[in-house]
Simulated assay, not measured.
Amino acid sequence: MIDGEDANSRISPEIRGLDSMKENTLTDRFKMVKNFDLNLLTTFEAVFIHRSGTKAADALGITPSAVSQALGRLRIHYNDALFIRDGKALAPTTVAIGIHEGLAEAYDNMIAKLQNISFDSLPTRLVVHCSPYISMFTINVMRKVLDEIAPDCEIVHSISGNSIAEAEDALIFRKADIIFDIHPHVSHSRVSQHISSEIPVMICRKSHPRLNGSLTREQAAEESHIFVDSESASLLSNRLDVNALLQLDRKCRFISPSLLSIISMVESSDMLAFVTERFYQKMKDSFDIQRLEMEVTLPSQPIYMIYNKAALNNQFFSTLVRKMTDIFMQEFQNNTPR
């Protein structure tokens, strides 16, 4: 048995010097943050994501008053307004944007450690956050890989409401392990992999009184249309691109976030709608719908797989992502027109 003095005597002066430097550095850092409540950073991130004190309070399970108090303390600490009222939303100042960008990776790593999301052993459950439609062709790939590497792992599907804030909230606060979304999440602490591209097609009911198999610009201008409801900037961009390609502003009569609701409305009315080629092929024999060939080539909609970089430090998660990516890329190549 080696006593304390003998053990210490065998440690080289260089090692003792490094330990001392590390201790001094940590001591200095403790002094810097001893009067700063690190919980304020969680409140800051929630407000930054939701652009609303009330929504941030709901996400964190605290009162709006507590959020206001936390922002007040942060404003004093940083000597900056941080968020400025812009209509109904709170717009971040340049200082707030700098704080968010500077802390993003470190904050993500800290949350991962605190929540013990390390997957040192095979996990018993994985949470996937995406819309019901995207889940149709993504979660089955995860299931296929898990059957191979973790057959007892449970998959939990958390439904996205087409809200950017929901997806950001799920990523930052670790409510989901993987997110599938229609827009990339640009961050130093996250990975956004392009795994698929969805091709839009115009549809109407088979018994449409004026249309059969094709649609001209002039006909499109005379008909009523259905839009997909989403906060996604990329979907809005695609909608505007379609209007520009058709050289008209389509008349909207119905808006819904649900492709099933949209396709049901098309079947029972004279309205037109865009759905994806994949969805049309699955539903064309179950609904009274037809595809309309158009004079223009429509822009495709990318699909991304998003996850936190810190999770890749674990061998299980890294293997899961790599094998899923291989399958997605193979399917992507097989479905890409040549």
Rank of each mutant, 00 (worst) to 15 (best):
Y107P: 12
L246K: 01
E148F: 14
A57K: 12
D152G: 14
A7R: 10
F36Y: 14
I11H: 06
L248V: 07
P209V: 06
E45M: 10
L122S: 12
S163G: 04
N238D: 11
T27G: 10
C252Q: 09
V128I: 15
V33K: 08
Y107C: 00
A91G: 05
M110H: 10
F287R: 00
S234H: 13
R217D: 04
Y307S: 03
I164Y: 12
E148Q: 15
K22C: 01
I262L: 01
D177N: 06
R73A: 07
M21W: 11
R217T: 07
N334L: 10
A176W: 02
R16M: 04
K34Y: 05
A310W: 10
Q301G: 07
R190F: 03
I262D: 11
M202W: 08
G102M: 00
F332C: 00
D80M: 11
E5L: 15
S264D: 06
D37F: 11
A220P: 01
N39H: 09
S224C: 09
A311F: 15
S20Q: 12
M265L: 09
H185P: 07
A165L: 03
E5D: 11
N140W: 06
E277M: 09
A57N: 02
F36W: 09
I327M: 09
I155F: 00
F274N: 04
A221Y: 04
L60H: 05
E218V: 02
D86T: 07
N243Q: 14
L41I: 15
M283W: 10
L240T: 10
I182C: 13
D3Q: 02
D147Y: 13
M110G: 11
N24T: 14
G61K: 05
E293Q: 12
L114P: 02
D3L: 03
T325P: 00
L298T: 15
S9Y: 01
E105Y: 10
I117K: 15
F30A: 12
P337Q: 14
S65T: 13
F30K: 14
L312M: 13
V266F: 00
A104C: 04
D152N: 14
E223C: 13
M294F: 10
F317R: 11
S158P: 05
I203L: 02
R143E: 12
D86L: 13
M21H: 10
K251M: 01
E168P: 02
N116D: 15
V145G: 02
V266A: 05
S135D: 08
K144Q: 14
D58E: 13
G98E: 07
M110W: 15
A96Q: 06
E168D: 15
M142D: 08
A57T: 11
L246T: 01
V275R: 04
F316W: 12
L114F: 13
D169L: 13
I111W: 01
S261L: 04
I203A: 03
N109V: 15
I303S: 07
